[in-house]
């Protein structure tokens, strides 16, 4: 697996953390620097329509996307895995209810559910995290359920049942560890879609509110000045696409590795 995705993601992490430590001034208005072109001393990546530093805003935006992606992916992976495990192992009524819920949540294509939730909850970063968590659990639940359905008749599970292990212990000790690898693949794709979704909501004005900087809201504001200052849209877009690209590639790489390991072990 190539190192590039990992390097890019590490850079994202580092930039996001640096944004918390460095004395950034992402909201400092300076009319001298109005639409300043890139590579000037005061504004290394140029200035926006209020003369604010694009570089500082890019750093702040990295922090926002990392925070939203990190929290929403953790929450939705935890809830989704738990529900999928329960549905797959217990079966019966639990499985019917969870499966129906999965189908209902899958009925909203793309960002539609997140947009609807943000519409009713109102804007703000907390609500974005909530909306993305509500939208995201389905993928993990479906994955966990399908895996458990094929794992539950394995010898080691049957042996544990025969030895009198309770269902909670079996799920936690004998099923969950086998789910972790595929869930990790799903989570890397999940990071990519959460980053896109946060930026998308902010682009629509439903996420982070001005003057706070997010890559999505930077694109939203920059689009109006495409003619005079294309770098307002190019800079956050490149950052966004690199992170999404890296997360997608990481998912592909992990999946390939997992596939070859699976075929070596079980073929």
């Amino acid at each position: 697996m190539s190192r590039l995705p990992v390097t890019l993601l590490a850079a994202w992490l580092l930039i996001a953390l640096a944004g918390q430590v460095l004395p950034l001034t992402p909201n400092e208005i300076d009319l001298e620097q109005l639409f300043a072109p890139p590579f000037s001393a005061a504004r290394p990546l140029g200035g926006d329509e209020l003369g604010r530093s694009l570089l500082d805003r890019l750093f702040t935006g990295a922090g926002i996307s990392l925070l939203v992606a990190g929290v929403s992916v953790s929450v939705s992976a935890t809830i989704g895995t738990a529900l999928g495990l329960l549905a797959g192992y217990l079966g019966g009524a639990v499985d019917r209810v969870v499966s129906r819920l999965i189908e209902i949540f899958l009925a909203f294509p793309g960002l539609l559910l997140a947009i609807a939730l943000a519409a009713f909850l109102g804007p703000g970063i907390g609500n974005v995290v909530l909306a993305l968590s509500v939208m995201g659990w389905v993928g993990y639940a479906r994955l966990a359920r399908n895996q458990v359905l094929s794992l539950r008749h394995r010898d080691h599970v049957l042996a544990a049942v025969a030895l009198g292990r309770g269902p909670v212990a079996i799920m936690r000790l004998h099923l969950l560890p086998l789910l972790l690898a595929p869930l990790l693949v799903e989570a890397s794709y999940g990071v990519a879609s959460a980053v896109i979704a946060e930026a998308g909501l902010s682009f629509l004005g439903l996420g982070v509110q001005p003057p706070q900087a997010s890559w999505g809201s930077m694109i939203r504001e920059g689009v109006r000045y495409l003619l005079v200052a294309p770098h307002l849209v190019l800079a956050p877009g490149i950052a966004l696409s690199l992170v999404v690209l890296a997360a997608n590639r990481l998912g592909d790489g992990l999946r390939d590795r997992l596939d070859s390991r699976l075929s070596r072990t079980y073929a």
């Binding site: 930026a199 694109i219 495409l226 849209v233 966004l240 696409s241 997608n248």
Partner: peptide, 22 residues
């Protein structure tokens, strides 16, 4: 395929406008 999946609509749109319209 990789670029298509990694470039969201709300950035691809402005990019295309920049190239083909402006």
């Amino acid at each position: 395929a990789l670029l298509g999946q990694s470039i969201p609509n709300f950035w691809l749109g402005p990019l295309l406008v920049l190239a083909f319209s402006i």
